[in-house]
Design a protein around this nucleic acid. Sequence first.
DNA 1: GCGATCAGAT
DNA 2: CACATCTGATCGC
Length: 441
Amino acid sequence: MESGIISVDKWRSGSQAYFLTHLHADHTAGLSSTWKRGPLFCSRLTARLLPCKFPSFDLSLLRILDIGTWHTLSLITPSSGDPTIVYVKAIDAHHCPGSVMYLFRGEFGCMLYSGDFRWEKTSVEAEIRRTMLLDALKNEKLDILYLDNTYCNPKYSFPPREVAAKKIVDIINSHPEHQIVIGIDSLGKEDLLLYISRELNIKIWVWPERLQIMHLLGFHDNFTTQTSLTRVRAIPRYSFSTDTLQGLNKLCPTIGIMPSGLPWVTKPLKGNENIFGSSPSSSCINKSNLSPDITKSSEKHDLIKDLGIASRFHEYIYTVPYSDHSCFAEIQEFVKLLRPINIKGIVSSSPYCIDPVYYFGHLCGTKQAFWRVHQKIENEEVEENRTCEDTNIKLASEGNSTKGKAGKKRKMDEFYFFGIRVSRVSLLRRLSRGVRIADDE
DNA sequence: GCGATCAGAT
DNA sequence: CACATCTGATCGC
């Protein structure tokens, strides 16, 4: 049987074509400026952004896939040496700029790799995308869906991004005298920042590399690297912490806003701090007379009363459920729409992320996968294993190329249309995402 | 010395 | 509690 025809967000050697869904770091681990293993397919926008991350990347290896158009790849069946045709269509994933899903058709059947995606149904764009996906699948069963299962648990529920964005503007407006910092990554959340910029009619500060990204995305008027021009700054998420906010508040009153799919917490609060801020006697209260006295009971009451979907985890920090991944209900809608024969989650890092078959197996074209997963769960220690593929990884005796307990995992793979080759994993480290299509396992 | 990988942090 | 990213250590060439 053939193996390793194409890889999605996986960069080991042996494939004939490589597909990148988007440029976040956990999907590019293994890619580098010296890439030469084969053609790399991606969206036009990803191709434009890619040199920022990989400056001397050989651009002659890039293959741009226009969204919504079928592309034809002539590949070789490794086992026989015979030519084979693979058709691929890229579909906007609405996760971050350039992000796409890939729909493949070939001898192996029909498969969709969702990548990271957000499936909001409130926008006009979402309706266009829904139609595009259904048209692409017309009269064709979907053999396998590789699904972004980041929040594949009913406990994960959050509103559309538009709602969260409004809340963030409300928070900013309710702090007219404060500096504002917002934690973001190197790509993503641009729509949020644009919305803030337009609603408040201000520019937003970003760090220089981020301004370059904004310009590549075509945003020339809403962002600046001059701190004097604005009170709203977007800073790297890794430098967004309680310490950062406490430091900033020694200079001037500042609040932090963390847009995230989940309530965000930093390291455990110390001493007599609590989620509504330090008591006046706390050693952590800052001593500057510029600092906001949020501990005044009347003001505290007003702030809390008005938080709505936002929450306040620290005296200076708000978290708002602005997520670039689908919530559980959206994932469910997506699966209901597609009715795949089989589903495979592409994320296995979260202790709460569960094999999507557990929740959605009954929506699939075959009940086999559903029953097998339920059987597996009933036969094992449910609370430990059903929510945590990492448990299997930790139990694995060796970090070879099969994830999980060899016997158990192989059993799991049997009902998938493809075997999945997963790179060697550290027993303690989460799996990277991605898939390499192979059916020889 | 360099890139890839890993561990630990935010 | 998650995600995405950074820094720094270690490994192999």
